[in-house]
Design a protein around this nucleic acid. Structure first.
Lengths: 209, 209
DNA sequence: AATTGTGAACCTCTTCACAGCT
DNA sequence: AGCTGTGAAGAGGTTCACAATT
């Protein structure tokens, strides 16, 4: 397949949500113009993003909302269940266990890990918190494909190294630090402070309105 | 000022964290090559990013870590305190109240709002949960510059509209929906599921390794 | 000798504009 | 007539490569 930019992928996720909402509202057909308007992009962008994967519309008519949603779902891999392990059940970790948007899209948090003896053995929503020291055994037994890392920055690289040794190939990292992974392993960083800092920059420099 | 890309700004945030860590380790000088290596970018990228704002290094020698950290801090607006209001104290909202990375960078959550009568009047970390219906009065009294929205998708646009009417100019949105704001208002979206979906896409399509 | 700062070259992503289909 | 799908043009972002400086 041709190389697809991450920008395209994250816009597809947006369109997917927009389509979910249109379907809820019983809207059956939508044009690239309408999607573009809702998601604040251009209609050419919507069509180009889709064109990397096929032709999903009908000229003159637009797209069938359910069809297009299903097609994008398949592209993104949302047509299957992904088993997820969550490492670190502090503030952020606990919030993620309950985050409905994950479950809805087929990402099931199946295992929780922590290193704190105070937490190990306790439960969050029926899920037992397991000792991080035994993670390799558990990961293999449960067929986990994705790991979410929500541990403090100073231990994040070690945690990631252990995950890589356990054959995890995709990691979502919430620790505010750049992590190194071997090529072939996907890592995405979610740093809430970085977004706030972008706002702070624009407030300070741009908006002399 | 020349238009600066958001990519540059978020890399500056990364460099800033890298410098914090170098300073902790008592390292006084760093080259663009070393920063680049840590943050997985090219050294030309580091130098170019900085060059939009000035010359902070010394040829042949590199950058003074403390100097550069302070300079980037000033660029990003981290040299001042930002007062933040948080709307929605569900799972995500509660986690954010305790998120150390915000406080450390000068973002102080001063007001909490919710619409749930069960929550209003309760406290999280000494902070009283206030009724969202009265938000306009509170925002004006407390000089709030930034709002974090952590409410369900279906009410997010209404919340944002109210914020805009209350003269909030910067919003960090955690609701998984595209929101409309008038031009001049900054909005940044933080959608954790979108990052997971990118991982899912790459697992499914790319990594036939 | 080492490393910055930067114009120019390069590459990637976005938008244009229109042929082609319904 | 209306809207998609897409090659070509344009805009924007990244990397190269080297003169300038310590």
């Amino acid at each position: 397949m041709e190389r697809i930019s991450t920008a395209t992928i994250s816009r597809l996720s947006q369109y997917y949500r927009t389509l979910e909402r249109l379907i809820e509202r019983k809207i059956q057909t939508v044009s690239s113009d309408e999607i573009a308007e809702i998601d604040s992009v251009t209609s050419a962008q919507v069509r180009k993003d889709l064109s990397f994967f096929g032709s999903f519309g009908r000229r003159g008519l637009g797209y069938d909302t359910t069809d297009l949603k299903n097609n994008i779902g398949t592209i993104l891999g949302l047509d299957k269940i992904w088993n997820v392990a969550l490492i670190g059940v502090g503030n952020i970790g606990r919030a993620l266990v309950d985050y409905g948007e994950f479950k809805k899209q087929g990402f099931i948090i199946k295992l929780l890990f922590d290193s704190d003896p105070e937490k190990i053995g306790k439960k969050i929503n029926e899920l037992l918190i397991l000792p991080f020291s035994d993670i390799q055994t558990y990961l293999k037994a449960e067929n986990i494909q994705i790991a979410i890392v929500a541990v403090p920055a100073r231990v994040a690289q070690n945690v990631v190294n252990t995950l890589v040794e356990s054959d995890i190939r995709a990691i979502l990292n919430f620790a505010p630090i750049s992590l190194k992974v071997p090529s072939g392993i996907m890592i995405k960083n979610e740093n809430m402070a970085i977004e706030l800092e972008a706002l702070s920059f624009y407030l300070k420099n741009k908006l002399k309105k």
